[in-house]
Write a protein that binds this DNA or RNA. Structure first.
Lengths: 226, 226
DNA sequence: CCCAATTTGTTCGTATGTATC
DNA sequence: AGATACATACGAACAAATTGG
């Protein structure tokens, strides 16, 4: 940081660091591992190789943050409490600002679950797809913090959905209402009606939220492993 | 994780790990450094020492997450967009649920800036104190995610306030209004009026927010260093 | 107060794997 | 195909810190 290195820039080679800091190879390598674990550098072997500054990926940041919650009793309803306020905020920003390319992608995802699921497995896949719908929206935000936070919550919810049958009871009524919400949301986003987008998402979150409260409270420990 | 180790539990000693995985000392130590950097273990020398599982501290989690935003163009107004919706949610939860002990602490903090600042330095200290007021509230939440997110934003804002004269122009009107908001908020929290607490905080955030928008947009790079 | 045992921390020398020219 | 420049891994030794006798 002090030397203003940018992603892609090469750190001094190990022998150079040994020379510069007057330390042994092992010590230098342990130090580099500390940066490695934080996702700040990546190393490559061979000529032209070395250790390079690397932008911390969203995936890495999510994994590191998940470690923190490994020791906390975070529940599904805790997550929904945050989603309930952040996602309406998100779509209010996005109304009228989405590219045709993204709009099309959103419609594609929506189409992937336009028919009710018939099996538990199909049901699970559809739920993952709805989460992808929200994820794609989150990725469009100009606010990196908002984008990350929603993405983080969606990753947790997706992991839980995949590794555990979270949404087992098939509920056709809920499915129909969710589909209706998202269809109307797309319209509001396209026409640029920020207020409507916010209201629709808010209502959507308020129906999805209480459903989760019914689930037993449980810690996320078993899902957070890398 | 696989062996269900809890915070405080000891990992095998280095010689044991060397034996168990059939690897050299340096390799084992680099692996332990990876866990160390994530805040998952701490090592102590001497008899009775070793490497111990450790709960990831909030401070560490914040620092690791800050690394992610080091490469993003996060602005003050991005942060306020999130605060604006999360902090009202926080105080709505907290209304009527705070211990007399905490209420007293909150009043103490409030009292520490009950007189208008006369110097820039005093002004800065008062702003840090107002952030502490919010931090103390965040710490009371039963929702670990909500608690962490607000705490994270407050840490960033505090760092900026301390290391840079963010709030330089002394604005007595704003000071008076902020004090009024917080006083009324304390009353609402004490009487357990959840709706009022939410409304007051919302209004508070909406006056503080636009003030920040006036600040030039800038990245947080220079502040995020550990 | 000092000594001895235990455990992590550090060093050095060497060898191996890997990618590039 | 071979030389070169890297990171990666190994092994033996020594240093430093902490604890208990």
């Amino acid at each position: 940081m002090r030397e203003g290195l940018q992603p892609g820039d090469r750190l001094p080679s190990e022998p150079e660091l040994i020379e510069r800091f007057g330390m042994a190879k092992g010590t230098i390598r342990e130090a580099l591992r500390l940066l490695d674990a934080q996702g700040l550098v990546k190393s490559r072997t061979g000529p032209g190789g070395g250790t390079f500054v690397h932008e911390v990926s969203q995936q890495r940041a999510e994994a590191l943050l998940a470690n923190y919650f490994y020791f906390k009793d975070l529940t599904i309803s805790d997550i929904y409490q945050i989603r309930r306020v952040l996602e309406p905020e998100l779509v209010a920003d996005l109304a009228g600002a989405l590219s045709p390319r993204v709009m099309e992608e959103l419609r594609d995802i929506l189409a992937s679950y336009s028919d009710p699921a018939t099996t538990d497995e199909e049901e699970r896949d559809q739920h993952v797809a709805t989460l992808q719908f929200h994820k794609l929206l989150a990725d469009q935000s100009a606010n990196p913090l908002l984008s990350f936070l929603i993405g983080f919550m969606l990753t947790i919810l997706t992991d839980i959905t995949v590794y555990r049958k979270l949404y087992t009871p098939i509920n056709r009524d809920l499915w129909a209402r969710g589909l209706d919400y998202q269809t109307r949301l797309l319209d509001a986003l396209e026409t640029g009606d920020s207020g409507a987008a916010r209201a629709i998402m808010k209502a959507h979150m308020q129906t999805a939220g209480p459903l989760m409260e019914g689930q037993e409270a449980f810690s996320l420990k078993r899902f957070l492993s890398h």
